[in-house]
Amino acid sequence: MKQQIIVNDLGRIPYQEAWDLQEKLLKENTDAKAAARAEGEGAVPQTRHHLLFCEHPPVYTLGKSGHPENLLVSDEELAAKGIQYVQTNRGGDITFHGADQIVGYPIIDLERFYADIGRYLRNLEEVIIRTIGDYGLTGERSSGETGVWLEPGVPGRARKICAMGVRCSRWVTMHGFALNVNTDLSYFNNIIPCGIQDKSVTSMQKETGRTLPVEEVRARIVHHFADIFGAEMVEGALFAAENGR
């Protein structure tokens, strides 16, 4: 029987609000796992899988092992530009979130799929590789660098199209990926993206030469997520009312 993943589009939402929601859902799942352990052998935890989509107002986020010096502007400059800066508990270094970027936050109990964080990250990358492949783009992996790239093995040509950073607690995931669709890439000039000096950032719009419908790209992500994770994707309205959407 396929696992069900509840899909919710949160719309445009502040980064901290989305982070708080992820923490809430993660805690619900880890509490359910603790309750099952307390019941004894054979008890099945009543965990629920979620895939949250959203778009954030302009924000730079730094991973827990990231380097603050990869932010190249001052607090005063950030305030003048109307950009937030948030230190997070995900993996990875610094990245940007903003308009026309698809941010996906899977909150998944990996023990109901496979207890392997490396495999999980490779599967997330595969979702994006197949998605951008639908638009004629050849996404690849770069050895030792999580995310999806174009021409990672070509000196001077390597460019990142999708950043990834996750957290996992008791095999429940949070945080996720950010795919640049029609994203304003000038925001990346204020940081050393992902702490990598010699590789640039790109978007689907820049690579295809056309503005893409974000809703269509999001639907392709859901399709490939279902296929790669062998899951049933269920459209949810769980958070629409409480988020005013």
Rank of each mutant, 00 (worst) to 15 (best):
K160M: 08
A79N: 01
R157P: 09
A115F: 05
E125C: 03
E126A: 13
R159N: 10
W171Q: 06
I117Y: 05
N89Q: 14
N190H: 10
T202S: 12
V103N: 07
I94N: 13
N182S: 03
L78G: 00
I192G: 11
V172P: 09
S203G: 13
D109H: 15
I117A: 06
E126Y: 02
L137D: 13
V73F: 00
A99Q: 13
E111K: 12
V172H: 13
E77K: 00
K81W: 02
P193G: 11
T138C: 10
Q197Y: 12
G176W: 14
T95K: 14
D184P: 14
A80Y: 01
I191F: 00
F177L: 14
E145A: 11
G82A: 01
R167M: 04
F177D: 09
G133Q: 04
Y135K: 02
L71S: 11
L71T: 02
S142M: 14
V148P: 04
V154I: 15
D116Q: 06
I129A: 08
S200K: 15
R170T: 08
R141P: 12
Y85W: 03
D198F: 11
T138G: 07
V148N: 09
K160Y: 08
G195M: 06
S142Y: 15
Q84N: 10
G82L: 03
N123Q: 12
P152Y: 06
R157H: 13
G118Y: 11
C162I: 02
Y120R: 02
I196N: 06
D198N: 13
G165Y: 14
I129P: 01
G176M: 06
G82E: 05
Y85N: 10
A163L: 04
C194H: 08
D93W: 00
G176L: 05
F96V: 05
E145I: 02
G91M: 03
L185A: 15
I102C: 04
F113E: 11
V148I: 03
A99R: 12
T202G: 09
G136S: 15
R119N: 03
V172K: 06
I83P: 03
V148Y: 09
A178H: 03
R119Q: 12
V73G: 02
G165M: 02
R157T: 04
T88V: 02
T138H: 14
Y120A: 01
H97N: 11
V86I: 07
I94F: 01
E126H: 01
D100T: 04
Q84W: 00
